[in-house]
Design a protein around this nucleic acid. Sequence first.
DNA 1: GTTGTCGAGAAAAACGTTTTAGTTGCCCTG
DNA 2: CAGGGCAACTAAAACGTTTTTCTCGACAAC
Lengths: 371, 371
Amino acid sequence: MSQRQPLPITANLAQKPVRTTLKTLANHLELSPTTVSFVISGSPFAETIAKSTRERIWAAAEKLNYRPNVFARYLHTKRTYSVAVLVPDVGDEYSAALIGGIESCLTKKGFFYFVVSHRGAPDLLRMSPDTLLDRGVEGMIFINTPLNRALPVPIVAICDITEGPGITRIKIDNGKAATLAVDHLLKLGHREIAVIKGPQGNGDTDDRWKQLCKACAKHGIKIHPENTVHLGIYPACNEKTMAENGYTAAQKLLARKRAFTALVAFNDASAIGAIRALSDAGLRVPDDVSVIGFDDIPQSSFTVPRLTTIRQPLSSMGELAANTLLEKISGNYGGPKLLKIQPQLVVRETTAVCHQPPLNLIAGKSAARSR
Amino acid sequence: MSQRQPLPITANLAQKPVRTTLKTLANHLELSPTTVSFVISGSPFAETIAKSTRERIWAAAEKLNYRPNVFARYLHTKRTYSVAVLVPDVGDEYSAALIGGIESCLTKKGFFYFVVSHRGAPDLLRMSPDTLLDRGVEGMIFINTPLNRALPVPIVAICDITEGPGITRIKIDNGKAATLAVDHLLKLGHREIAVIKGPQGNGDTDDRWKQLCKACAKHGIKIHPENTVHLGIYPACNEKTMAENGYTAAQKLLARKRAFTALVAFNDASAIGAIRALSDAGLRVPDDVSVIGFDDIPQSSFTVPRLTTIRQPLSSMGELAANTLLEKISGNYGGPKLLKIQPQLVVRETTAVCHQPPLNLIAGKSAARSR
DNA sequence: GTTGTCGAGAAAAACGTTTTAGTTGCCCTG
DNA sequence: CAGGGCAACTAAAACGTTTTTCTCGACAAC
């Protein structure tokens, strides 16, 4: 990396204004740096300084616009009041919503955060924790990001591909979520359910799929292998948007010509893509196929038709993650290793009563679909 | 802020592993810290150290896993290789897309970044630049964020509510964008055009509106005041999603009962909300009303019907912003003060030929709409 | 009148680097 | 054989704080 060049000749940027240092301030006050440091840093020794002197110091600090140098301070305190957030991609709405929640908590507590989007890149994944540690982060939040070693700072993970000692995990209760989705669909009369699984490598993919099967099995329903697709493999699938992946996934499903009357998508974005694919194939949602998503992203209540979905309270989950991390950092965390978040069924317009002929007639419908 | 407590009794976190320092490394090598520093930091003086010694040093650094303390180093170099990104809200897709582009550039160059979402809060807006400066950021990117003073670091602004000396601005060519939108609509035969203006306080709102009027005027068309609404006022409008704001904006428009056959929305998210409101009012898009958005967010190509929009290359704009900032930081920026980005018309399915009766008959239609 | 204590503050070391200004030994030159 | 020049390294100051240890005077106690 090149050394800093003299700055451009833009008048006001030509030379940096000198920051007031502790020494300057002390000289100006005719006090020792020690004394000034005591009061400015809020050290317990500040008590031993006369009240009048303390006031003089604060006044002068204000006047000279003194701002302590965070880096010099770090050398002693080892504190940075910053954390890191590791995420597959800042850009997608799932991560963005979580980060929003995280930030709102951190800001309240005076913490800053670095974001690293690894986009599945193995070297970033390997090196990021260390470079972040170099920058003094006091903890990390792993969103859907793998890890398999110990780190010298507290960690909170959203999803369970993050492994290492002492991790606190926050995840949606996929069992409950699956039950909610499946029961809703069954109650509407659906029996042939197709599933768009998440991308391979995503923390929720396997668990959610397993729970979906379990919820179906409870009612004697099986999801036919031909009626399942996945959204791709990390990191390749990251090059396309979720909606795009959902679109092609639904197309694959249709190409198989095996009938289904309901579709459970891995998340709302892929559900939106899938609905588009169904429409393009001449199928109506929900008349021909019911579709249910996961997440409840902001758009979901405004699509045409409005998306039925299993809501994850992403913003609250982010806040909880940040709060938990901060408690762990201060050593006050007494909660469990796993925090399960309860999802919620939001019925809107993409699911409806199944009007399809009973199972044995479905072959005909399936053929009709192939036009 | 409380002092760091002894960490919880989680076996592996109980005591932090000691990091190798320069002194330890030097002792181990039986060399002076100076020598080791020269070669590790890539100082020009490293040349004066025997090649064999240099290799010994690197080997030992590797073996002892030496990682220079960034904070100690800062005291001399004044460099942090970090910047700040200020944004109304990390969560919305516009900002998220820009940040994605910014990050991808920064990561390539080894820079880290802090994000601050101000959500329009005046005190955050006022104090953030200083706290960020305290943390040593070498530059800042203001996305749709106001400023009105000089800062001692280079600034790149996306949108023009950011003011101060020496700022480099990146913005979409709203003139071109407006022409693209208006010409497309006029060519389809639309004459009564409604507009959902951006939120008051957004950097593009006024410019885009003015350009829209201008583009219409060129063809002798006037946008009737009754056919305009805005998306709210910062920061209040931030409490709802853009889609939601778009929904209520469109409802207001309909309530006025003044006919329009085409609607230009401030962005895609509000367009999606508006389309929902039109549907709810029994109007078909595009048969009854054509709708055109701005941005081209990922969902736009998958909505039903697919959204016609004016694309802003958000990710590239983010990359450009980061690149420009980095050049300014290194003092190599020779480009202009304003970089205008060319938008692009993406015709999809929400715009169609105007089938409405000519102007003088429109009153009837308007009445029909009011059911 | 020595000792102790207390209030108010300061000197100096420490944190982990970079940087400036040397030092040391060796060879070469005249 | 004094001196200059060079290669290879080092001592010490500096960066801007915090923290530990110390000083100094006043006053009280015995």
